[in-house]
C-alpha cells in the first residue's frame, strides 16, 4: 500500500519519464544482442577518447629509429613505417572516425528531418521541389558521387584540419534524402490523423503544429534511423579515406590506416598495420547496427522483422 503510494508520487514528479519511455527501456534491456552492441560501443568510445591519455606515445609521433616493429611489450600493436605506435594511432583514428560518423549523422538527421517535415506538411510545390532533389541524389550511386566531391575538394586544396568537417558534410549530402523521404511519409500519415485536424480547429499556428505536435511523434523514427546511419557514415568515411579522399594524413582515421594494406610487403609481412583498424571498423559498425536494431524493436514493436 505504502510502496504504491510512493511510486505514484514519483510519477507525479517525473511526467517526462512516462510509462511509454519506461516500456521502451525495458524492451531494450531484454534484447541481448543490442546490449552487447551497446557495451562494445561504450568500450570503443572509451578506448578512443580516454585511451590516448594512457599512451606514452601520443606526442612522440614520428620515430625514425623505430620503424615497422612487430608487436612487443613496448608497442602492443607494433609500429608503422614512420615509427608511430599503431595502438595509439588506432585510438586517435577512432576519435576521428566516430566523430565523422556522429557528425554526418547529426547533419543528415537535421537536413533530412527539416526538409522531410517541410515537404510532408506543406506539400504542393515545396514538396515537389524537395522530393525531386532527393530523387536525383538517390538515383546517383553514392560512392562515385562522394569520389567526385572529394576530388573537387582536393583540387581546391582545403586545409587538412577542415577536411574532416567537409567529409561530414559530404556524407550528410548523400545521407539526407533517404531520411527525408522516411520523415515525409510519416508526416503525411500523421497529418491525416484526427488530432492534427483538431489542431487546425483550435487555430494553432503552423510552427506550433510542426514543432509541438508533429516533431515529438517522429522522434523515435529519427533516433532509430539516426543510429543506424552512423554505421553507414563510418563505413563511407573509411572507404573515402582508404582511397586517400577522405581524412588525409597526418590525421589518422581507420580508413586511411588500412591504406597500408595497399603495399604488398605490408599486406604479407606486417598484418599489425591493417588488421586492427579493419577489425575496429567491422566491430564498431556491427555494434552500431545491433544497437540500432535493438532500439527500433524497443521503440516500435510493429517494425520488427519476423
Amino acid at each position: 500500500m505504502e510502496s504504491s503510494a510512493v511510486t505514484l508520487e514519483k510519477n507525479k514528479k517525473l511526467p517526462r519519464s512516462s510509462s511509454l519511455w519506461r516500456q521502451i527501456a525495458r524492451r531494450f534491456l531484454q534484447n541481448k544482442m543490442s546490449l552487447i552492441g551497446l557495451a562494445f560501443l561504450i568500450f570503443i568510445i572509451l578506448f578512443s577518447f580516454i585511451g590516448p591519455f594512457f599512451s606514452p606515445y601520443v606526442n612522440l609521433g614520428v620515430d625514425p629509429t623505430n620503424i615497422n616493429q612487430s608487436p612487443s611489450a613496448q608497442h602492443w600493436l607494433g609500429t608503422d613505417k614512420l615509427g608511430r605506435d599503431v595502438l595509439t594511432r588506432l585510438m586517435l583514428a577512432g576519435r576521428i572516425s566516430l566523430l565523422v560518423g556522429l557528425g554526418a549523422m547529426v547533419m543528415s538527421v537535421v537536413i533530412g528531418g527539416v526538409l522531410g517535415i517541410i515537404s510532408g506538411f506543406y506539400r504542393g510545390i515545396v514538396d515537389q521541389i524537395i522530393m525531386r532533389i532527393a530523387d536525383v541524389l538517390m538515383t546517383l550511386p553514392g560512392l562515385p558521387l562522394l569520389f567526385i566531391m572529394a576530388a573537387i575538394l582536393s583540387e581546391w586544396k582545403v586545409p587538412t584540419e577542415y577536411r574532416i568537417y567537409i567529409v561530414m558534410l559530404m556524407l550528410s549530402i548523400v545521407g539526407w534524402p533517404g531520411l527525408a523521404r522516411l520523415v515525409r511519409s510519416q508526416i503525411l500519415s500523421l497529418s491525416e490523423r484526427q488530432f492534427m485536424q483538431a489542431t487546425e480547429a483550435l487555430g494553432l499556428r503552423d510552427t506550433r503544429k510542426l514543432f509541438k505536435h508533429l516533431l515529438p511523434n517522429i522522434i523515435p523514427l529519427l533516433i532509430v534511423s539516426g543510429t543506424l546511419s552512423v554505421g553507414g557514415a563510418i563505413l563511407s568515411e573509411s572507404t573515402l579515406s582508404f582511397f586517400g579522399l577522405g581524412v588525409v594524413p597526418p590525421d589518422a582515421s581507420w580508413g586511411n590506416m588500412i591504406t597500408s594494406a595497399n603495399s604488398l610487403l605490408d599486406f604479407q609481412k606486417r598484418p599489425w598495420l591493417w588488421v586492427p583498424p579493419g577489425l575496429a571498423i567491422f566491430l564498431t559498425v556491427i555494434s552500431i547496427n545491433l544497437l540500432g536494431d535493438g532500439l527500433r524493436d524497443a521503440i516500435d514493436p510493429n517494425m520488427r522483422r519476423r
Partner: peptide, 11 residues
C-alpha cells in the same frame, strides 16, 4: 470531435 481517443496527440 467524434472520437476523443484519436483527437488528442498521443505523445
Amino acid at each position: 470531435f467524434q472520437e476523443p481517443m484519436t483527437s488528442l496527440n498521443p505523445v
